[in-house]
Amino acid sequence: MTLTTDETRQWLLEFSKRIQEQKQYLSDLDQAIGDGDHGSNMARGVTAVEDMIKDDSLTKPSEVMKKAAMAMISKVGGASGPLYGSAFLDMSKIIDEESLPEVVEAGLNAIKKRGKAELEDKTMVDMWGPVVEALKTDTLTQAFIEETMEATKPLKAKKGRASYLNERSIGHLDPGAVSSGYLFIAMIEEVGKND
């Protein structure tokens, strides 16, 4: 089943709402192992996403997703902007034809290609990877997403700013994995609601 335009829009709006609610928390997570700006970076991005996808003339999921990609690319900065932006952009290329597991997998591949991170490097890949697997086996739940956030805690960062800390990055959640978790919680809530 493919997504409708409305589902895509509602998904992103719900994502935006969650990011804005958790802005301070995301920055606090980033303060512990990065530079404390992940919440404000993401909040700046999703505010622009909201503005750009409100437009009623967008009639296809791909148009909505592409607007969201452009908003993230041009407003976030930092490492997370190009990563979310590349993910949304590649998702937009197939979202009209393919169903959710393939769409999210396209996003995962874009993130890996741009950031060159692998599983267990303590990045957002550690959320997107497990979520793709769970989608394929139809086992994705909010509890699974929350466990996946927690699972970044014992990892040692090998990419991004947190990698400067080496061992000291252990014991903290990865902020990008948590913000990505909100994206997927929003997805569970808004996609397939009317089935």
Partner: peptide, 11 residues
Amino acid sequence: NYTGDVLNFDM
């Protein structure tokens, strides 16, 4: 050389 700068300038 910071991940953020590298990714944004690459794009």
